[in-house]
Simulated assay, not measured.
Amino acid sequence: MTTAAVTQNPAQPRKIRNRVLWTLQILLGLFFILASGLPKLVGQADAVRSFQDIGWGEWYRYFVGVVEVSGGIGLLVPRLSGLAAAGLAIVTVCAAATQAFQLGSPGLAVFPLVLAVIFAWIARERLTAR
């Protein structure tokens, strides 16, 4: 075996990481636009009911819907992806806190916390790559 076959291209791990990041950004961006934000904005029954349980009023449901749709779109725009991921990390930590403390369902707080970690990683990678 030659040394050329054994040595790895130094740019290869960076390319793989970039592909993983873009795959996550696209999937999570579409999720936050279509499955999370839009149902809040159009008044889907489950979204309305969950925000009634929180007790902060209709304005809060619309606010969270706009933030989630904006964050989802931002994940898909290269210049905005780092800031969008940072914002969505904050949103998901707040969602976990709401689940755990306001709604009394700490078990349901795990999913948003996992998303917060993923968003924090995306934000770190995208904001430090500049």
Rank of each mutant, 00 (worst) to 15 (best):
G29D: 05
I16E: 00
I54H: 10
P39W: 08
W56E: 02
V48A: 12
L30Y: 01
S50N: 14
A45W: 14
L38Q: 01
R17M: 14
Q52R: 05
T23Q: 03
L24C: 10
G55H: 06
L21W: 10
L28E: 00
A47F: 08
I33D: 04
G55F: 02
P39S: 02
L24A: 15
Q12I: 07
I26Q: 10
L38R: 05
R19E: 08
S36T: 09
R49Q: 11
L27K: 02
P13R: 07
R14S: 01
D46E: 12
L24E: 03
L24D: 03
G57N: 13
K40V: 03
V42Y: 15
I54A: 02
P39V: 11
Q12K: 12
W56M: 07
W22A: 06
I26C: 15
K15D: 11
T7G: 01
R49M: 07
P10L: 07
Q12R: 15
Q44L: 12
L27H: 04
I16V: 11
L24T: 09
L34E: 05
L21Q: 12
L30T: 07
R17S: 12
D46H: 13
Q52L: 02
R14G: 00
A35P: 00
P13G: 09
Q25D: 02
W22L: 02
P13H: 07
S50A: 08
W22V: 06
P10T: 03
F31H: 10
A45D: 12
L24I: 06
P10D: 07
A35Y: 03
G29N: 04
P10F: 10
L28A: 13
G57F: 11
V20I: 15
A47N: 05
A11H: 08
V48W: 09
V42D: 04
G55C: 03
L28V: 11
G43L: 05
V20W: 06
L41S: 06
N18I: 01
L30D: 05
G57H: 11
G57E: 03
K40Y: 11
L34Y: 03
I26S: 10
A47Y: 08
P39I: 04
V42R: 04
L21A: 14
W22T: 10
F31K: 02
L28I: 15
F32L: 10
